[in-house]
Every structure is written in structure tokens, then in C-alpha cells.
């Protein structure tokens, strides 16, 4: 089960973020824009759902040394949540995600990460950033 519908998809084991691309001005929106283009100079209403690049460069990163409060469900015992903000060059967009399989000591600003997925502590899957394959 996905933790949120319409934001990402998993096909053949590969995870993809889903966004929209405006047919008029080519602006990408993530999460998907509904109804109209978010470029105020455009006003287009013809939006196609597209898969975003699966790789990007770390813009910044951090961790949560203490369990985040609800509605986050923290694992017990608590495993520090790692977060990365990853810049997708082609889309010109920075997307936050939890990080799978790496700690803050493994991360560097500018390094490449690749999209994967993993479970929240109560089960549903969410997109995550992981090491490149």
C-alpha cells in the first residue's frame, strides 16, 4: 500500500515520482497540479502526468535525532529519520524525501542519489532517496 496516492509509482521494482507537465509552457509540478498550470503567466489547463527523473543531486540533508511527533509514526526502538532535499536537474525542482540505507555521515551536498521506496513504521510505502545503483 502506498502512503499517498498519485505522488509516486513503483513499476518493475523501480520507483518514480509523478508530476504534471503543462502542454502549453512545459512547466513541471510536483506533486501533480490539478486543473491549471501553476505558472501564473501561462494559465494552461492541459496537464499531462509524467514520471520525474529518478536521479538527482543532494541540495542539503539532515536527520531527526528525536522521534518526530504525530502524524509521523516513529519506529520502536526509534531509528533516526534521515532527510534529503534532492535537486532534479531536468525538472528544475528540489524534492524532499526520507533517505534509505544511508546516514548523515554518508551524505554530502552535491552527491548523486537515486529514488527508491521504503515503508513507514506502520506499513505503507513512501518514496525515499537512496544510494545510486
Amino acid at each position: 500500500m502506498l502512503a499517498i496516492e498519485g505522488w509516486f509509482t513503483i513499476e518493475d521494482g523501480l520507483t518514480y515520482l509523478l508530476g504534471t507537465r503543462c502542454a502549453t509552457c512545459r512547466t513541471i509540478s510536483f506533486p501533480c497540479a490539478a486543473g491549471w498550470c501553476r505558472n501564473p503567466g501561462c494559465g494552461g489547463t492541459d496537464l499531462d502526468v509524467v514520471r520525474l527523473s529518478r536521479r538527482g543531486k543532494v541540495w542539503s540533508y539532515t536527520n531527526a535525532c528525536y522521534p518526530p511527533p504525530p502524524p509521523f509514526v516513529a519506529a520502536e526502538p526509534y531509528e533516526p529519520v534521515i532527510l534529503a532535499a534532492v535537486e532534479l536537474a531536468e525538472e528544475g525542482i528540489i524534492v524532499l524525501g526520507q533517505v534509505a540505507g544511508l546516514t548523515v555521515d554518508d551524505l554530502r551536498v552535491g552527491m548523486d542519489l537515486e529514488l527508491t521506496h521504503g515503508p513507514l513504521a506502520d506499513g505503507p510505502l513512501v518514496w525515499m532517496w537512496g544510494a545510486t545503483s
Binding site: C22, C25, R26, T27, I28, S29, F30, P31, R38, N39, G41, E90, E91, G92, I93, I94, V95, L96
Partner: peptide, 9 residues
């Protein structure tokens, strides 16, 4: 969770 896109503007 994500920024706007600077790809077209």
C-alpha cells in the same frame, strides 16, 4: 515537500 520548477520559467 518540493519547490516550484525553474525549468521553463
Amino acid at each position: 515537500i518540493a519547490t516550484d520548477s525553474s525549468a521553463s520559467v
